[in-house]
Amino acid sequence: MWVEHKEWVREAIRYMEFHLKEDVEFEDVVQHTAVSRFHFHRIFKEHVGISASAYLRERRLTLAAMELLSTNKRILDIALEYRFAGQDSFSRAFKRQYQMTPQQYRSGFRPFQRTQEEVGSYMSKNEHQTGSGQSYNEYVEQQEIQNVQSKLPVGWLFTGMFPNQYQAELDRLVVHRGTVSATVKGIANANPQGFGTLMQMFKAKKYQGKRLRLTGFLKTKEAQMAGLWMRVDGKNEEPLAFDNMMNRPVVGTKDWAQYDVVLDVDPLAEAIAFGVILSGEGQVWVDGIRIEEVDQSVPTTDSFINEDQTLPDDPFNLDFEVIRGEEV
């Protein structure tokens, strides 16, 4: 019976994956598998670890999260596309799964988005996939990883894109100082479009108008990309300053070393978020994190400022008379 039950679950997942943007609910899945409602619920939860309704909701939220990072669609449009009643219900469900609002997620993690070429390379490595690019075996393995995760450090949240492909836990064997460190680990063949981050958010009031430096010791093992990150948010969750070390990521296998991120906190800032991130396969350990005020002699690492510095101070060549290669 186990083989037969497993095939029922495979078929149910296949059906849901191909109808994520349609008005399909639990009852529709039950009818498609031709199994009694009670029997199907018990079997699905036994094999996957969550109910079919929860699976459907999580997959829709996961794809919606991808849309938030990879498109400029309105949040309301994304909510409706993935069959939520409206933006409010979508935001509540999204925050339960990702520990932040859709706008915070889009603003804070969009710079981590990988290229379509990288994503395509990952997809080509994986066969026997469902319509959305995730196989039954992959999903079950991810759920097993999530179910055995150690309790997160007190005060910390774990989120990301494809968070089930990452573990976040305490480590008492690999430590920089003291008795424990925290680590984020990606499973084999973790989607390069995804990432996992161990993070915190706090009010900015005490630090408004000041320059803050986030420092921490990182150690990596075969990491595709890892680093510290910090973001300053203003009213309506608008990001005012941000750096995620993407211009200087920690890659490969590196021993303990200290890294830092320095940002100015706007006088009108309302929140500050920070953490450690891993994208793709590998593992990163973090220890000895500090956040401290520094003076103006310490340069910022703000990626927003660096982007602004690429712009000229004034308009140029308005009459088109300056020819490339002949600039004076």
Rank of each mutant, 00 (worst) to 15 (best):
M1I: 13
V3G: 06
E4T: 02
H5M: 15
I13P: 08
R14N: 10
L20H: 10
E22L: 08
D23Y: 13
V24P: 01
D28H: 13
V29N: 01
Q31T: 04
H32V: 10
H32E: 10
V35Q: 10
S36W: 06
R37P: 14
F38Q: 06
I43L: 03
F44P: 12
F44K: 04
G49D: 03
Y55S: 04
R57W: 07
E58G: 09
T62F: 01
T62K: 00
A64K: 09
A65T: 07
L69I: 09
S70M: 12
I75M: 07
L76H: 11
I78Y: 07
E81Q: 15
R83Y: 03
T101F: 08
G108E: 02
P111E: 00
F112A: 11
Q113I: 11
R114C: 14
T115I: 06
Q116S: 12
S121N: 09
S121W: 04
H128R: 14
S132T: 10
N137Y: 07
Y139G: 14
E141T: 02
E144Q: 08
Q149M: 12
T159M: 03
A168L: 04
D171Q: 08
L173H: 14
V175I: 05
H176P: 00
T183N: 08
V184M: 13
G186E: 08
I187M: 09
N189G: 15
N191A: 11
T197K: 06
Q200F: 10
L214P: 02
T215Y: 00
K219N: 04
D233V: 12
E237R: 09
L240E: 01
N247E: 15
V250L: 06
V251E: 08
K254W: 10
D255T: 05
Q258F: 01
V265C: 14
D266Y: 04
A271M: 06
I272F: 13
F274C: 02
F274M: 07
G280I: 00
E281P: 05
R290E: 13
E293P: 13
S297R: 08
T300N: 10
T310S: 08
L311P: 15
P312Q: 11
F320K: 10
V328G: 12
